[in-house]
Amino acid sequence: MNAPTPQVDFATPADAEKVLEEVAGRLRAGSVAPYLGPGLLALSQPDIPLAPEALAAFFATKVALPRRAKGNAWASAQHIESYKHRATVTAYMAEAFAPKVEPTAFHRHLATLPVPLIVDSWYDGAMRTALMEAARTASWGEAQGITRAGIGEDRWYRFYDAAGLESDRAAAEDWTTLLYKPHGAVAPAKNFLISDADYVEVLTEIDIQTPIPDAVKHRRTTRSFLFLGCRFNDQMLRTYARQVTKRSSGPHCAVLEPEGLSRNELKFLLETGLVPLAVPLARAVEILQG
């Protein structure tokens, strides 16, 4: 017998917009950490994959994938790594995310604010570009998740300063804004967590938070999160959302339209207490920028 579909209460559009207006003020004050997903990039229509499924389809144009890997980015990358080489996976990822991605108006708005923490869950460099172009007086830098495959180091992440040079955790604590890319990014150094093997060790320890930089843990404790352009239709995405926001202050909100949400997504909203705001994304960012 099929389990019943979880029932999630969505606020009316008018009430959801009022919540976003309040969140916009807290965002400017630095008490909200934006958590960006690839759906936000769709507003600028870049020529890169904009979802894990689209990335899996890109891999399928490069190699013949077994049925079990089709449609699954992590399994597709693992197949390529197993039958070709890790360097091939990195080369394909670099090719997929090589096209220049123009920051959206919201990326540029964020870059003007002294936001202590920005989480960006996709592999593009739009947020970094926006920060670089903003001519900020406040300091900023980036933490990226890295693969541990073949590096011979006991490291889970690397830090990069505004110039793209590798930095360290001591410097990261002093940055006004920390951009956190938990899955890595094409810029500045082509760090990618993408294959199943990449995630095995991370998922083994993420519950005790070892793979998450201390600078992220320190900044989230007094802040809530706002999810924009994110989906939770994959266990990997749900795990990261849950663990990155762990021990933060809450309540957390997500801009999501009810149509098309999977049963697992609805269940995730109920389990985590994430407040869904049924506002079209373009309208939501317009309110946040106001």
Rank of each mutant, 00 (worst) to 15 (best):
P99Q: 15
A282P: 01
F227H: 13
A241G: 09
E17Y: 01
E166M: 07
D207T: 09
T112M: 04
L228G: 03
T245S: 12
R67F: 06
R108G: 01
E17I: 14
V23I: 15
L193E: 08
P280T: 02
I80N: 11
I206A: 09
P103Q: 05
D154T: 14
T222F: 13
A77M: 14
L277F: 07
P6A: 06
D207S: 10
T221E: 15
W122N: 15
V115W: 11
A57L: 08
R26V: 02
V89T: 06
Q235M: 10
F225L: 13
A94W: 02
W122R: 07
G229C: 07
A56S: 13
G290H: 06
R86E: 07
R28I: 01
L50G: 12
I151Q: 09
L228S: 04
T272M: 02
V8P: 14
E102I: 09
W140E: 02
N72K: 08
A3W: 02
H79A: 14
F10H: 12
N191H: 15
R155G: 02
Q209F: 03
T177I: 07
I194H: 11
P52E: 07
T5K: 00
F10A: 04
V202N: 06
T222L: 15
T272P: 03
T221K: 15
G25M: 09
E133N: 13
R223M: 10
I146Q: 05
K100V: 15
A149P: 01
L41Y: 03
R26T: 07
R169K: 08
P49E: 08
L269P: 00
L131S: 02
F10L: 13
V119F: 04
A16D: 06
A171K: 13
S31R: 05
V186A: 06
A75Y: 11
D9I: 14
V200I: 11
A187E: 09
L269E: 02
A138K: 08
G145C: 08
P38K: 11
